[in-house]
Structure formats: structure tokens, C-alpha cells
Design a protein around this nucleic acid. Sequence first.
DNA 1: TTAGTACTTATGTAGTACATATCAAATGTG
DNA 2: CACATTTGATATGTACTACATAAGTACTAA
Lengths: 232, 232
Amino acid sequence: MSLLQSDLSKDLERISTNTMADLVEIRLREYLKKKSFLPGDALPKEVELAEALGVSRNIVREALSRLRMLGMIESRKKRGMVLTRPDILGAFERVLDPLIIDKSTLQDIFELRLTLEMGMADILYIRKTAKDIEELEAIAKREVKSSTSFRIENEIEFHGKLYAITGNDTLKRFQIMLLPIFGYVTTLEKEQVKGKITHLDLVDILKHGDKEAFRNGMREHLAPHFDRLEKK
Amino acid sequence: MSLLQSDLSKDLERISTNTMADLVEIRLREYLKKKSFLPGDALPKEVELAEALGVSRNIVREALSRLRMLGMIESRKKRGMVLTRPDILGAFERVLDPLIIDKSTLQDIFELRLTLEMGMADILYIRKTAKDIEELEAIAKREVKSSTSFRIENEIEFHGKLYAITGNDTLKRFQIMLLPIFGYVTTLEKEQVKGKITHLDLVDILKHGDKEAFRNGMREHLAPHFDRLEKK
DNA sequence: TTAGTACTTATGTAGTACATATCAAATGTG
DNA sequence: CACATTTGATATGTACTACATAAGTACTAA
């Protein structure tokens, strides 16, 4: 119900609240796209943009400030503004805060994580190297010895290493981004949930088993989480 | 070399280029977090914020403009600004443009998609309903009849429906967001690549097969893409 | 040629003024 | 007394001006 209401209000805003800064932001995006600027290219000056668009410099600055935040442009004192390679996840990270995100989204994101880890087997097997496995094993072994108070850190370290092995930067950063949420969900659990398959088992599968075996192993490892999903 | 240089300059900026708007943005974030505002709560007025922070209203507005773009706050003429449920993916969408994203990130995101679709089997089997399968089958059948020129649309429709079945809004919106890239990568392909498993086959598995069968089926369906990965 | 200085310029910040939409109270009418 | 209308107050949206600051650029002197 609240979902419907929020959707409605969102739709209503779409038409009404078109602030100038929004429009200018869009126009600037189109401009950058059309002109197919290359990273490092200089943009027109703020005053020129303001004149061309017929708005005050303030407005232009608001729009530029947004693009700057997203990492799409950088600006230096005299040199003007230059287009940079946009930082895709940079913006994403900023909104992602367990304290601000509502509970259902939190749940969504947790499921996203499960999906990613279930699906990474193939790429993992394409990219993994002997050195990777070695490092992963070291992490898993360290974990057995250390006390239980560090289990979240270990958990993060192990799964983080898996993301790293994929060699996919975006994926890896995605995981880093999800860390706070990862921790948050873990603390929600009354007691430590453990699958039958441990981290060491997973390492062993990576060493001697095939993709299918790894997928099944990961499924078992994450089983407690999936069980919780099914109960809902 | 140029990479090193850009890294260096980035590090150097980290300390130097702390514009006031950046600082205010951070401060506002902390403020919102600390006060643990609930969605719908009203924020202090712009002038008050400006006075409290000791900066001009312009700066405050720049920072607020960013948060507004990210969907963290909404502001109406007289009522003031209110904290809203942040639109996690809204910001993300804005940076995500195939024309601006560099090629390696594009590749990363494509792999992200493969990972997601390989990993969604479990959640799919938890959430799927008879109605879902029915609709999915309708899509797959329609596709067989229609001409090949619509294959991208069909592809998107079918896989989109899969995301929808997961019941995970974030996941679904994620897919919508990836659509342009989806299309972009597809057009890169010289000729239509087809796995041995068709969409109809997948529907059949969803009807009568188990999770493992579906995972394997999806793997086969996406096989041409994975093959391309292995060749790299 | 090179080092150093002064000038120019574009962004960063501050402050003022007014437009506009909206809430709220006051007023008028049945 | 209740309800509709008007009026005023207020917070955001936009514009404009002014100056600070950093960073190129050109010019001068050793």
C-alpha cells in the first residue's frame, strides 16, 4: 500500500517539479553526450553555459555540482572544467546507508548479494589462478584459528576475495559497497548461522571440483539464508 | 603510465580539492544520519542551515541539490524539505550511459548481468507462481512467431520477466537500468548468437524441472556469451 | 636562456533581492 | 455555527553582483 502511494507521488512529481537545475542537468548531459567529449576535454565556462542556456550562473553551478559529485567532471580554478571517466559506483555508494535505507530495500539488496554469489561460479572458474586459490585458502585457515568475535570480518574477507578473483572491478566495488549492509543483516541474526559447507570446503572445491560442484557448494554454504527466505 | 599519472593526480586532489559544497554535503549526510530522521520528517530551513554551518545559502543549496538528485530529500515551496526514502538506483541510472561509460566498465557490467542471471535460480524457485510461468511462456511463444528484427526486444522482455518473478524490486530495476547496455552489447555481436537452450526450453524447465536443472539450462542458454569471455 | 614577477582569467564563495507556490489564519457568507 | 474565500506570511527557486583565490600567461630582468 505504501508502495503504491509512493509510486503515485513519484509519478506526480515527474511532471510538476521540474526545477531549472534539473533541466540544466539534463541539458548538460545531452550536450556532453552529443559532442562526444573525451575524458580530459575542457568544457565551456560557467558564464558561457549560463548565457547559452538562459539561466543564472547559480543554476548552472547547481547542475555542475551534481555532475561533479557523480565524478563526471572535474573543475580546477583557472583551467576550466574537464570531463572525466564517470565513477559509476561512486554515486551509488553515497545513497547506500543501512541507517537510511528502508527495510524492504535492505532485504532486496541482501537477496542481490545471494544472487551474485550464486551466479559467480562460471566467471570464477574462467579467471581463477593458483595464486588466488592460495590466498583464499590462507584466509579460510586464518579464520578457523581466530576467535568467533571476528567472524564478520572473516566472512567479509573471504567473500570479498571471491569477488576479487572474478577480476571484475565493478563487481568487486559492488561488494565493497554492500559491506555495511552485509554487516547489518548479519547482526540481525539471533545466532550464528552456519551452512554445512565451510569456507575451507569451498576452497577445496575450487581446487579439485568443477563449476557445478562449486555452485552446489555455495548453495549449501548459503543455505541458512535461503531457508530464511523460504519461510517468509 | 597515464594510468599512474591519473591515479597520482586523483590522490593529490583528495586532500586539496575539498570544496565547501563537498564538506556541507558530508555534514548534512552525517546530520541526517545522527538525527535518525524518518522519511517525511522536515529539515531545517536553508537559511538556518547556512547560518549554522557558517556558509552562504548558495553553498547549502548546492549540497541540497545533490541530495535532491539522489532522491534523499524532496523540497516544496513553503513546506520545507523532507527526508524521503532514497532512490537507490535513481542516481545510478544517471551515470549509466553506454556512450559515456568506458569499454572495460561496459564489459564489467555485462558480466554482472550474466552473474545475476546465473544466480537467480534459487530465488526464482522460491517466488515463482503458476501465473508467472504462464506469462513467461506467452512471451516466449510470441517470440517464435515474430520476425527476427524484434529479437532484442523479445530478449529483453523475456529476461526482464525473469527478474520480475524474483519479486525483488531492486533487482528488477537493476535490470531496467542495464537495458541500454544490454542492447549495446547485443549490437556489438556480428551475428545472432544462440545457445542450444531456447527461452521455451527454460520455461519448460521452470514448469517441470528443479533449480539445478534451471541453472544448467540458463548456463547453456548463455553459453555463447561465456564462450566469448573464455576466449579473452 | 632562465628565473621571477605581474597580469589575466575562471572557478569558489558571499550576499541581496525578488518571484512563486503553499500553508494558515482571518474574514465573509449561508 | 459551519464552510468557502481571501489575504498574508513564509520557504524555496531564481537572478544578479561582488570579491577571493588559484592557476595559467606573458613580460621583464639577470
